[in-house]
Design a protein around this nucleic acid. Structure first.
Length: 465
RNA sequence: GGCGUCGUGGCCAAGUGGUAAGGCGAGGGUCUGCAAAAUCCUUAUUCACGGGUUCAAAUCCCGUCGACGCCUCCA
């Protein structure tokens, strides 16, 4: 039985879907005006892992991730670059999509964009005005009336009175209540805008997600996800809008990932302590980024530093070792050793499911993979044939795949491979002659080229990496 | 100040009432010409601190200290 921590109840709850075997999951995507960073990658990976696991458990997952392509920051940046804002955002949408692909994140089943949801957004706002949850202000903005929602604040566990007490909240002149938030913003001179019953303008930040949810998944969804920095005000306001509009519970489970930490602080565009996904992938593999996430707890802050990265890198290498072929001189395993390996594969599966069922305990799931890789490697060391290893390796690969790990060895071109093979032949000859200096020289040369070699009784094997 | 998450070995991190998974690092062994990889052994009588409940607590309760996030755009 899968259990998920639900932000709104602050409890771990049994997971039950609205419809049998179907999960409707909406995850807040990014505002596209700049290169995405590894913090965004963390969030994308967390929900990719959740989605993969749900699918592994037999659910069909409708996974919606939106793009915010209309926003102040986009407008500002477009102005700086002298570029059309929608062109700019489209450029970064394509960019982010390719980042996600590089990270082996499965494409969402839908990727709605604000700019393409205008009619529904306007209709949504009109509905809220009709139900007196919103009002058009004198300045051309439309605001949501927070006092019209008796539950307002229940996701983030805040009370309107407490929030008002904060000195940082200034009462907008046009607002009836300081916490009222914009559904529609009147356009400033020369800004990109859309026609609406309230004049030219554009949507506020929160309404887009309510509208796109409705468009893609309907009135009620199973999982709503995003970074925990979105709990307030974004998700709080989404709930207020959607539930005021439909009169129904919006999302059953609210799932929030913790923030990636660089130097003890949240990585964010505004703090400037950023490593972009592209920078990361120029030196390390997608599996390493994913392993970093898997090693942690999705809800907790994730430490991004040399030590945690080095560990993740080693972990990936270690898992890869389980997939290596049998020794060419393997004599075969005795029956009892074969069944030991088979039961190791069985318990790895059981343990992985048990861990993941417990609020996506990925660290526990990875531990199950380590146990199995050890069993496989031991079997190989004891002379297992490829056939004997095959079954365990297949389940190992399947389980790693549930977590989204590819565990592929790097490939070289055939020219490069030929060059390496020639050097290996030369080195083998040198070793036969006990010319250790020459042998080690070639090994160093290969290392420079990015080739790791292993000598054993039955010869030398090598691989890129 | 308010809300929330959390504080487990050198580091990352499971474990939420019955006596500390896993990984990285470190030390030692097997293997090797030497390495590398793999594998084996060792590495927390103890879970921020102080009280309390209990036959029994890292796990529950109270308090203290500390970290991080949100309260303003943010994955």
């Amino acid at each position: 039985m899968l259990k998920i921590y639900n932000t709104i109840s602050r409890k771990t709850e049994e997971f039950q879907t609205l419809e049998p075997n179907l999960v409707k999951m909406y995850v807040c995507g990014v505002t596209v005006y700049n290169d995405a960073h590894v913090g965004h990658a963390m969030s994308a990976l967390v929900f990719d892992i959740i989605r993969r696991y749900l699918e592994y458990r037999g659910y069909t997952v409708k996974h919606v991730m939106n793009y915010t392509d209309v926003d102040d920051k986009i407008i500002n940046r477009a102005k700086q670059l002298g570029e059309d804002p929608l062109k700019l955002s489209q450029r970064y949408i394509n960019d982010y999509a390719s980042d996600l692909k590089s990270l082996n994140v499965l494409p969402a089943t839908a990727n709605p964009q604000v700019s393409q949801t205008m009619p529904l957004i306007i209709k949504f706002i009109e509905g809220l005005i009709q139900k007196e949850h919103a009002y058009a202000a004198s300045n051309g903005d439309v605001y949501f009336r927070v006092t019209s929602d008796p539950d307002y604040g229940r996701l983030s566990n805040r009370k309107l009175d407490d929030m008002q007490a904060g000195a940082r909240i200034e009462v907008g002149e046009a607002k009836d209540h300081p916490m009222d938030f914009a559904l529609w913003k009147a356009a400033k001179e020369g800004e990109i805008s859309w026609d609406s019953p309230w004049g030219k303008g554009r949507p506020g930040w929160h309404i887009e997600c309510s509208a796109m949810n409705l468009a893609e998944l309907g009135e009620q969804i199973d999982i709503h996800g995003g970074g925990n920095d979105l709990i307030f005000p974004h998700h709080e306001n989404e709930i207020a809008q959607s539930e005021s509009y439909t009169g129904k519970e919006f999302s059953r489970y609210w799932v929030h990932n913790g923030m990636l930490q660089l130097g003890g602080e949240k990585m964010s565009k505004s703090l400037g302590n950023i490593v972009s996904i592209k920078e990361f992938l120029s030196t390390r593999s997608a599996d390493v980024m994913r392993m970093l996430v898997l090693n942690g707890t999705y809800r907790a802050p994730l430490l991004f530093n040399d030590e945690t990265l080095a560990a993740a890198e080693k972990n990936v290498e270690r898992l890869k070792s389980a997939l290596r072929p049998a020794s060419s001189t393997a004599k075969g395993l005795a029956a009892d050793a074969v069944s030991t390996l088979a039961s190791a594969a069985e318990s790895a599966k059981t343990n992985l499911i048990e861990a993941m069922d417990s609020d996506f305990n990925t660290a526990g799931a990875v531990a199950a993979l380590f146990e199995l890789s050890k069993a496989i490697n031991t079997a190989r060391d004891n002379g297992a044939t490829n056939e004997q290893l095959g079954l365990a390796q297949a389940s190992f690969k399947e389980l790693a795949g549930v977590l989204g790990l590819k565990l592929e060895e790097k490939q070289g071109s055939s020219d490069q491979d030929a060059q390496v093979n020639a050097l290996i032949v030369e080195r083998t000859e040198a070793r036969k002659q006990k010319q250790w200096a020459r042998s080690d020289e070639i090994r160093d040369q290969l290392k420079e080229m990015g080739v790791a070699i292993e000598d054993s009784k039955d010869g030398t094997t090598w691989r890129w990496g």
